[in-house]
Structures are given as C-alpha cells and as structure tokens.
Write a protein that binds this DNA or RNA. Structure first.
Lengths: 253, 253
DNA sequence: CCTGATTATCGTCAGGCAGACGACTATGAT
DNA sequence: ATCATAGTCGTCTGCCTGACGATAATCAGG
C-alpha cells in the first residue's frame, strides 16, 4: 500500500554545531557570519540542512569537515591525526525559532584541539573562534545587524550554552578533556584545558596525582617536552579509558 | 522576499516516549501494540507526529498525557499530584528507520510513579507495562509479527536502551529517583527504586545514612507508615535539591 | 503472651581519596 | 650564577564509603 507523506506536516531538519576548543587559556567556540537573511551579518553556529538520505551523525560530520577540516572520530577506531570528538547534543524545535519556516535543528557538540589555522570553509563567509563568554554575554543592547557584539542568530545562544554545559560536566566523569589536546600532551597542558573549560584554577600537584593515578587515562609516550618553559614534562597520549571512576571533582563555586 | 520551503528536503518529525516506572521491584517501560503497518501487531514505544505549530516538549507532554494521563512536570512549579518527570533524550534519524518515509524522531524520557492502573489511552489499542529486560532481551528468533516476544518495532529497542541507560546514570547524581516514588515515601521505598533501576542490592544502613545525610534531598513530613511490614518508617517528600553532591555510587559490576 | 520474621534506624571501624601545602628538580632567561 | 618557571614527589588531615554489629518497632502465628 503506498503511503501518503502529505498526510503529515513537513519539517526542515538541520544540524547545528557547537565546536569547542581551548585557545590561549580560554574556551572558544566556532562562529560563522551569516551571509543571508534572516540575521544577515550576525554571528551564528555553523550548520546546515540534512540531506534526504543522510543520517544525522553523518550530516554533522560533513558540516564539521566543511567548516574546519576536522574528521569526526569514531571511538572504536584509532584516533586519526585530524580528529575531533563529535556527539549529539540536543534537538531544538520551537515553531518560531526560524522565521522562514518550521525547522527542527539537531545540535551536535564537537571538541577539537587547538587548530593551526581557523581555516574558512568551502563557503567564502567568515569563520572565527570566539571565547564563549563573549558569544554569550551579549545583551543585545548593541544588537544592530552586523554588530560584532550582537547576540547570536536564532536560538544559537541557548544551544551554545547547552553545549558548553555539556562539555563542562562531561570532562568531570570522562576522559573527554583529552579531545582538546593534541595527540601528545603534558599533564600541565591537560590541566590548563580543565582550567579553561571550568574557569577555575586547579592545584598542579593534586591534579598530577589524580590523572596519573587513574588507570587507563594517560599512557606515557616516553618523550618529554619543554614547550611550556620550565622543567621538561613527560608526554602522554590518551589511554583507552573513557570513563573516570572516581571522577575529577570540579571545585565549588 | 518570500521563501521557498520546497528548496529543502521535507521530513516528518515525531516524538517517541520512553516512559519508565518501578512495579513489583522491577523497572518497567510503557509499550503499545501497533494497530497498523508497518510492524502491525508488534510492540512499540508510544509516540506520534509533532503538529505543525507545536514545540517538541509540548508534543511529548501531549503524547504522555494521552497514553497515561500523567502531566509533564515543570520543575519550577510545585509538583502536582499526577506529575511525571519529562526530558528530552536523543534524536534518531537513520534514513531507513521507518520504511514508509523519512521520519526523524525526537525521543523523550519520562519517569513516573507506579500508577494505579495502566489505563489505555484515547486510542483503543492495547497498552501495557513490561519489564525492560523482557522488552530488550528479544533475539527476534520468535519474531513473527504479533508475537509477544518479537523485538520492538522500528529502532525502539535502541531508544529504550538509551533511555534506560540515561535513567540509570542520572539517578546517580540527581534526585531524580524520587520521580519514581509517590509524593510521600519512605527511605526503604526509595532504596527499592534504586535497586530496581540498577538491578543490584544496596545496604539498607548505608543507603539510609547517605540519603538522610544529603541536604535538600529528603524532607520529613512527620508521618510514618507501615505499609511495607516491619517497623514503621518515616515518610519523606522530595526536597528542593536536584543535584546530589557527592553522588550516589552505583556498586561495581 | 511469647517467638520469630521483617523492616527501620543508629553506631562503629577501617580504607580510600581529595584538598592543602612543603620540598625538590630541571629547564630557560638575564 | 641567580632567578623565574613549571613539573613531580610526599605528607597530613578530614570526609566519605563499604562492611557489618546492634537495637527498635511492627506483624503473624502458636
């Protein structure tokens, strides 16, 4: 029996990306400047429409690659050089979230190491990393279109806030913070990731004891580096463990 | 400038519900029997299409009320008598997940106290509570259509498994387990909720110490009850705290 | 009434882990 | 050589958890 799709309301489905990285000791998100109405000239999260025969995760990985050149990382495979963590975040479907039409957006969260260059994607629009506070602390008081301090387009401030909160809580009980680091990194670099994401200062000695004492979190590569200045530090790679038990504790307040 | 929606692929968007409760010391989920093709006669999760001007959370709350009579619980308001916890779970959009057409389903998770009657919804189809293991442990070896032991329709086994895992982990660090209890409950009843959801036995003495010692988790109502047999137990209501810090620890293995 | 079964509640103790912080090490800069 | 910087190892104390003993208050049945 043939089926009549017109019996059900039609929606457009898009994926939006919260791509986070740590740059210069602060948590940054990828933002693109919109070249078209609505919200023309305003900053927004990267994203796009899902294709007719494309799974949601595939669409998100495609958008991520288009914007950053990063590959989505399948956790079952060894980590390729240019890999980012990618996971589904949440879905936003307020009927009025897009003034053009009914769009349901499946937001995804990507965590990437600091990239050599914030390369613009295939499209010619501008792309940049911006500290998440600067993207979120926008009252709209100066919100003329095109103003760099205008709020993010659509409901993207909400999506970004949800993504940041997911990242903040997830590095507590998983080894996901290593997704912000290059393949080889030091304990100090990992600590600065936690400090940037949580916005707190951590005790280097207790942090060192905790991460080196958690089985499977870090594996030493044998090398050392002195790129941070001071005494040379051991280099590590991410170990096989994905869940930290007991978790890293985020300091109060 | 008018906008042409036909420029983008059209999707149907539905909400599916993982409704969990604890009955007779085991974790159960709500299942409905499908009256139509595809998967006619098979068990499935309750759900339905999102209406053209309906937010996703509203659609989920509407489906929940239709199937169970439960109201979704806005956490900012005092808990009404027939309230359930409702939250978004994840979104499933495999192009082949529904043989009829491209359907993206936004799954939601609802936690409800044990209901007086598993009342059938407005539709005349049959509805029942089933232990989650019995819904998930179906190899499909006996999977003729209509067979009670056939796997769940569509990708609903996956959705149910994800919902159960979300509930299992979320009661660790939040006070959500109280959503499985009536408005007034004893420490022992709350402990049996944890035991049913996790499938483990907990030490009654350590559990009592933990939950009564966590500020804001439980507030005594002053009453006592003996409905479980044995010594009368104090009655509590859920306190204002939503996050448990430190969390309840799920026993190893 | 007495006994046992059942459930609730309080207490004790040892081990593990986290926070605070002292001490020492190995590099580069001046 | 000295200093600044960062990394690494230890120590101590307090809190929390798991294991488990002991007591309290009810009900069922003899």
């Amino acid at each position: 029996m043939p089926y009549d799709p017109s019996a059900f309301p039609a929606f457009a489905v898009s994926v939006d990306l919260v791509v986070l990285t740590v740059r210069r000791h602060s948590l940054c998100a990828l933002a693109v400047r919109r070249g078209e109405s609505p919200f023309k000239g305003r900053w927004a999260l990267p994203g796009g429409f899902v294709r007719p025969d494309e799974d949601l995760a595939v669409a998100a990985a495609r958008e991520l690659a288009e914007e950053t050149g990063l590959l989505a990382h399948d956790p079952t495979l060894p980590v390729p050089p240019n890999a980012a963590h990618l996971e589904q975040l949440a879905t936003y479907g307020d009927p009025k979230r897009d003034p053009r039409m009914r769009v349901v957006s499946v937001a995804h969260l990507a965590l990437a190491p600091d990239l050599p260059a914030p390369r613009a994607g295939g499209d010619a629009h501008s792309v940049r990393w911006a500290p998440v506070e600067s993207l979120l602390d926008r009252e709209g008081a100066f919100g003329r279109d095109g103003d760099l301090a205008a709020p993010l387009a659509f409901d993207h401030a909400r999506i970004l806030a949800d993504g940041v909160e997911r990242a903040r809580s997830k590095i507590e009980y998983s080894s996901l913070a290593t997704a912000f680091c290059p393949q080889e990194f030091t304990v100090g670099e990992l600590r600065r990731v936690y400090e940037a994401v949580w916005g707190v200062a951590l005790d280097p000695r207790n942090f060192h004891r905790k991460v080196t004492g958690t089985p499977g979190f870090l594996v030493p590569t044998g090398g050392t580096t002195t790129r941070q200045g001071g005494r040379p530090a051991q280099l590590f790679r991410a170990g096989g463990a994905t869940l930290l038990n007991p978790p890293m504790l985020r300091p109060e307040v």
